[in-house]
Nucleic acid binder design. Structure first.
Length: 284
DNA sequence: AGGGCAACCTGGGGGC
DNA sequence: TGCCCCCAGGTTGCCC
């Protein structure tokens, strides 16, 4: 469910917790910590008593550095929301359907709610050069298009070496992160590129356009509070974003293309649907 | 090595 | 009303 803009909305929602101390951790469903290999008890033990640092994000991964006294920061609370995960911040105790983990800190509850249980939390060590540490599990995730260090020319070059379709390449979190099925379709529509166009056949200009449109559409979605079709994606206060009303391609099959008026189509591949304009986005 | 697919889950909606 | 099938915003491991 959540792609980069939705995860960033959640990250910002956690900012009020900077400096708060974890008082209690309750793992109600062990599947919610599958990213923590040593198990739920160890997860809770390593989180309890830690102080929250400033939340960070790469692509769809979110983490909170964990401080202990004056010791150097070694650990982080790592979060991946999967398809249906939510982090909700409650001032008072409340029950939630599909509640998986409850973290009590600063007199509040941070509740991880997840219907489909593909999301997961972990306490993960921070690795990498000083000032650029990321959780170990994030090490193989490429920078996302909103990262100041994102190297557009380099990603264009790498994308054009891929022997696969451009949409698959866009969804490959090791090449460029943060893009999921919604924003891939939106970016390809904006760039006028067919989702099944072989990545290696793109001109450098077309590849650049696809990546720039990815960044652009995610920035606009972020400004609208993210995309939600229902109560499954919400911010930490349980509120939905508004970008679904701005979608030009995703879920718009049968409706006229905003550019040319031709009916948009939906085509299944890789076990998921792609939405595009058969006139503006020609396979070349 | 790199690409592609099934598996991991729950629930809502549509068709019959 | 009920049942069954399809579909959903993601990642991973395993096979080729």
């Amino acid at each position: 469910m959540p792609e980069l803009p939705e995860v960033e909305v959640v990250r910002r929602g956690l900012l009020p917790l900077v400096g708060a101390d974890v008082e209690a951790v309750d793992v109600l469903d062990a599947r919610a910590v599958t990213r923590h290999p040593s198990g739920a008890a160890d997860f809770a033990a390593r989180l309890t008593g830690a102080r929250f640092g400033e939340p960070a994000r790469r692509g769809k991964f979110l983490w909170v550095p964990l401080l202990r006294g004056t010791a150097p920061v070694r650990d982080s609370l790592l979060v991946h929301l999967g398809m249906s995960g939510q982090l909700l911040l409650d001032d008072e105790w409340r029950a939630h359907r599909h509640e998986r983990v409850r973290i009590v800190l600063g007199g509040r509850s941070l509740v991880f709610v997840d219907q489909r249980t593909f999301g997961s939390l972990a306490v993960d060590p921070l690795v990498g050069p000083l000032g650029q540490e990321v959780p170990a599990q994030v090490g193989r995730i490429a920078l996302d298009p909103l990262d100041p260090g994102f190297d557009l020319a380099e990603v264009v070059r790498r994308m054009r070496t891929r022997r696969t379709e451009v949409k698959r390449a866009l969804l490959d979190q090791g090449l460029v992160s943060g893009i999921g099925n919604i924003y891939a379709d939106e970016a390809l529509w904006a760039a006028r590129v067919h989702p099944r166009q072989p990545a290696a056949s793109l001109s450098a200009q077309a590849a650049r356009r696809v990546l720039e449109e990815s960044r652009h559409v995610m920035e606009r979605a972020l400004a609208e509070g993210g995309t939600s079709f229902d109560a499954l994606y919400v911010n930490v206060n349980g509120q939905s974003g508004y970008f679904s009303r701005s979608l030009q391609a995703y879920g718009q099959h049968g409706r006229p293309c905003a550019r040319c008026g031709r009916a948009l189509v939906r085509e299944m591949f890789t076990n998921r649907s792609s939405h595009y304009c058969p006139r503006c986005q020609r396979l070349r």
